[in-house]
C-alpha cells in the first residue's frame, strides 16, 4: 500500500488536541450515552435494510399473521362486531410483533453479532454492554412501534376507532415489556450456538408466551387462566384491553379509576418478569463465541 503515514508533526499536534478535548484524566465518561447508542443503532438500521430476509421477517410477518388469524377465527367475519374485533386485532398485533420482531429477531441478531466477533470488537471501544444491547434493539423497537401505529390507524379507519379509555396503560405495557423481551433475547442468544439454532432455542418461550397470551388461541378452562395471567404477554394483552376499551375480562365497562385498579396485577407481573429477564441476561448472555 502506498500509505501516507501520519506525519509526526501532525500526529503530535493532534494527539495533544485530542488530549485537550478529552479534558482531565480524572473525568469519568457516562456509562450510558444516547449518542453512542444512536451511532450503533444507525449502523444496525443500515444492516437490517440491507438484509432482505430479515427485513421481510421483521416488517411483514406479524401483520400477515394477524390478518390470517383474524380471517380464520372469524374475528373479521361478516357477523363480527367491529368494537370487539378492533381491540382484539391490536392485542394480537402487539403480541405477534413483540414476540417475533423484538424477541425472536433480536435473539438471532445478538447471536449473529457475537459469532461474527462484532460484539467482541465493540467491547474494546467506548460502548458499555447495556449500550450494545440497546442499540441492536432500536430497529426492532421502531418497527414494532410503526406496526402498532399503522395497526391502530387501520383498525380506526376500517373497523371502529377503539375508545382509548386509558391510553397510559398501553404505554406502560409497552415500556415494561420491551426491555423484558430484549433481555430475554440476550439470555436466549447465550444458549444459542448459531443463528440457525436460535430458531429452536426461541421456540419454547415463543410457544408458551403466545399460547398463554390468550389472544391468539381460545382461552382454556379456569386452570389455564390461573397460569396465563402470570405470563408477560397475557399481562400486555390485559393492559391493552383496559387501555383501549376500558372493559374487564368479561366485557363489562369500567370507570377510569377501576381500569387503574385492574392494571395493578398485570403491571406487577411485568415488573417481576423484567427482573427475571435481567437476571437471565446477566446469567446467560455471552459476548464471545465459546472457545
Amino acid at each position: 500500500m502506498s500509505a501516507a503515514p501520519v506525519t509526526p508533526s501532525t500526529a503530535s499536534t493532534e494527539a495533544h488536541a485530542g488530549a485537550a478535548r478529552r479534558g482531565t484524566a480524572s473525568r469519568r465518561p457516562a456509562a450510558f450515552s444516547l449518542r453512542r447508542v444512536a451511532a450503533l443503532a444507525r449502523a444496525e438500521t443500515l444492516l437490517l435494510l440491507r438484509n432482505g430476509t430479515a427485513l421481510f421477517n421483521a416488517v411483514a410477518i406479524s401483520p400477515l399473521f394477524v390478518l390470517f388469524f383474524s380471517t380464520i377465527s372469524g374475528t373479521l367475519g361478516p357477523d363480527a362486531d367491529p368494537d370487539v374485533a378492533g381491540p382484539l386485532i391490536l392485542q394480537q398485533l402487539a403480541a405477534m410483533s413483540l414476540l417475533f420482531v423484538v424477541y425472536y429477531n433480536l435473539t438471532t441478531t445478538y447471536v449473529a453479532r457475537r459469532q461474527e466477533l462484532v460484539l467482541k470488537r465493540l467491547l474494546t471501544g467506548e460502548c458499555s454492554r447495556p449500550e450494545l444491547l440497546a442499540a441492536a434493539a432500536v430497529p426492532a423497537l421502531l418497527i414494532t412501534a410503526v406496526q402498532l401505529v399503522l395497526g391502530y390507524a387501520a383498525v380506526a379507519l376500517l373497523l371502529a376507532p377503539p375508545p382509548l379509555a386509558n391510553p397510559v396503560l398501553v404505554v406502560v405495557a409497552l415500556v415494561l415489556v420491551t426491555p423484558t423481551l430484549v433481555l430475554l433475547a440476550a439470555a436466549t442468544s447465550g444458549v444459542s450456538r448459531t443463528v440457525e439454532s436460535a430458531q429452536l432455542t426461541t421456540l419454547p418461550a415463543l410457544a408458551v408466551l403466545m399460547v398463554f397470551s390468550g389472544v391468539v388461541a381460545p382461552a382454556g378452562g379456569g386452570g389455564f387462566d390461573d397460569v396465563a395471567r402470570f405470563t408477560p404477554m397475557h399481562a400486555v394483552a390485559s393492559l391493552f384491553r383496559l387501555g383501549l376499551t376500558g372493559t374487564d375480562a368479561d366485557g363489562a365497562a369500567l370507570a377510569l379509576g377501576e381500569t387503574f385498579a385492574q392494571a395493578a396485577l398485570p403491571v406487577a407481573v411485568l415488573l417481576a418478569w423484567l427482573g427475571l429477564a435481567w437476571y437471565a441476561a446477566r446469567r446467560w448472555m455471552r459476548w464471545e463465541p465459546q472457545r
Binding site: 478535548r21 478529552r22 465518561p29 449518542r35 453512542r36 444512536a38 451511532a39 450503533l40 444507525r42 449502523a43 443500515l46 444492516l47 440491507r50 438484509n51 453479532r113 461474527e116 466477533l117 462484532v118 467482541k120 470488537r121 474494546t124 471501544g125 467506548e126 460502548c127
Partner: peptide
C-alpha cells in the same frame, strides 16, 4: 485485537463512521 469481526454488510466508510461516532 488479534481477531475481531466487522459487520460485513457495512462499507469501510460506514464502519469507520460508526466507530468514530461512539468515541469521545
Amino acid at each position: 485485537l488479534q481477531e475481531a469481526g466487522f459487520s460485513s454488510d457495512l462499507t469501510v466508510a460506514e464502519t469507520v463512521r460508526m466507530w468514530a461516532s461512539t468515541m469521545t
